[in-house]
Amino acid sequence: MAQIHGILAEFDGPAALLKAGKQLNEKGYRKYDCHSPFPIHGMDDAMGLKRSPLGFIIALFAIIGGLVGLGLQTWVHSIEYPLVISGKPFFAWQSYIIVTFALFILFGAGAAVFGMLGLNKLPRYHHPLFYSDRFKKVTDDGFFVNIAAGDALFDKKSTAAYLKSIGGKNIEVIEGEE
């Protein structure tokens, strides 16, 4: 028998989904996600999600990038190849700003893109939720909650019953490998 991935339930609309997200959070569920065709304002708060650490990852890489840019130019112009260029001093920090700034942005932007992909566990080609035919509606007019089997409170029967009690419909158990 295949491994259980989680339980999927459909909700009526964005408001119902928002409410369900909040109720699950208050009930103590942690490993669950809400799926909707468009972003719903206030969902992060309702689910009690923490801020993504991406900002700090970006800052770290941006600073490293800036230091690399500044260091490279200082080393080239002041230490290894001290040439007089248009009468400027060897350590002409003003002229280093542009490349320093550019590498600051480049490293930061790279960290933003790849950090985002990494935190989202991408790239991946398949997800057990895609076994559900009903779930295809999520890109059109479907609003779903998925509770993962890994959640501490997860129990096939009681979780399904709870989802039903808060307005979930078409409850199905999703099987498949992560």
């Binding site: 248009s86 009468g87 400027k88 003003q94 002229s95 700003i97 542009i98």
Partner: peptide, 12 residues
């Protein structure tokens, strides 16, 4: 402000 300063500094 930086751009204004930078170009004037560069051209000298």
């Amino acid at each position: 402000g930086g751009a204004q300063y930078f170009f004037i500094w560069y051209a000298n």
